[in-house]
Amino acid sequence: MDGFVLSRPDHSVVTRGVRRSFGSSDAATHALSAGTTKLIVGALPFDPAAATALYEPAEATIASRPWQPRDPQTLPTTRVDREIPSSSEHLRRVEKLIGRLRSGEIDKVVAARTVELRTQTPISPTALAARMTALNPVANTFAVDLSAAGAEFEGHSLVGATPEVLVSRRGRVVTCRPLAGTTKRSADSEQDREAGESLLRSTKNLAEHAFVTAWIREVLQPMCSDLSVPATPELTNTHEVWHLASPIRGTLRNDTTALDLAMALHPTPALCGTPTDAALKVIRETEEPRRFYGGAVGWCDDAGDGDWVVAIRCAEISADGLSAWASAGGGIVAESDPQDELDETSTKLRTLLTALGAETLD
């Protein structure tokens, strides 16, 4: 694809073509502050040290309605070719991480794994985005060309339907809605209700969520004249899982842009861990590079307004469309159970696997 889509339930941003790319988020923010560009779109990688995929589009449409593709295409049948790492290796990694957590080295860390998918005919990024919009109408659907990140990503796309907004800015008002703490949903309505209520009482999940909200408060407080962070989280859900969520709202002291806010908040403890630097170091040591999974996708205009969503429930699609990589992670704390953490990643991966018609993981 040669464009960008971010579709939220009440508005959308769709672009085509590239006027110029930016080698770093600093270069993009400089262009905005200098007034040499009116709009930046793209993606931030999980690892802040990696190359960004940010660019100024050639054409852009911002609409007060969700995105609707003009000519939806069919999607090929895909199959899971391999798991990176294997389920057994992921269990071993989580066990080792729990040991490091109990030693006090870190407070929380997110462990992720990936499935590689193969198909005989190309996957269209826009067709996948359209399918995910249909399956998850209240999610934030995105599709972004990653070519701006360099030769390794030339022709690659990132497509997903995320439930999590990293940050949104309109004028001086900044809002976030972090998700941390997860449990699987049930087809039985009574069991499903009990699962949600149990999540609200879960010491392990409440602690995991508290790490995230405390960190966001620490980052945003100096930037805001007032900041509202709920004392306790609320329940929210997708088709597959219940999450703990906290709606956060603040008033900015100055003209900090949506892109600046996204850079300051990313990666949050919900996708990385805490303390952030220590957790990021552990992830670099123990995992394969996450690339753009766990990063952020969004836009920022020359007024500083914009939206950035967390790049989860997504897949990176190869240039020829015959391969895709979908990732999922879970927050590990000292009380975590390795098998539960493995199961959580399998549940989260179903969003992508269902959209692509691939077999689900046990």
Rank of each mutant, 00 (worst) to 15 (best):
S124N: 09
S198A: 15
S246D: 11
S7Q: 06
P45L: 07
I283L: 08
R70Y: 03
A60Y: 01
T274C: 09
C314D: 03
R102M: 13
P66G: 10
G295V: 08
T276V: 14
A180P: 12
H11S: 15
A279R: 14
A134W: 14
V241H: 01
L352M: 15
E240N: 14
S88R: 14
A195K: 03
I62K: 03
V14E: 02
E285N: 13
V159T: 06
D2T: 08
G329I: 05
L280Q: 14
A151R: 11
S318R: 08
E164G: 12
W67V: 08
H239G: 12
D145A: 01
S33Y: 01
V14L: 06
H90K: 07
R79Q: 14
L356A: 08
Q191G: 11
Q73K: 13
K184D: 01
F211N: 06
S323Q: 11
P85S: 12
I84T: 14
T286I: 07
A279E: 15
E285I: 02
V297S: 03
D10H: 13
G104V: 13
A210V: 04
S318E: 12
Q339I: 02
M263L: 15
T37G: 11
L342F: 02
T37L: 01
F153R: 12
L200A: 11
S327Q: 10
A161L: 02
S202F: 00
E359W: 03
I317E: 02
D145T: 05
G306Q: 06
T354P: 06
R313V: 12
R100D: 12
A129R: 02
P85W: 11
L259H: 03
A324D: 02
E116G: 10
V80G: 00
L135Q: 09
H30K: 14
T354G: 08
V80N: 04
H239Q: 15
S336N: 03
R169L: 12
A148L: 05
E197S: 15
Q339L: 12
A315C: 15
V5I: 05
R118M: 11
D81P: 04
P57S: 03
A31P: 07
V13K: 00
T74W: 11
G304T: 06
V310Q: 04
L75R: 11
V333I: 13
N136Q: 15
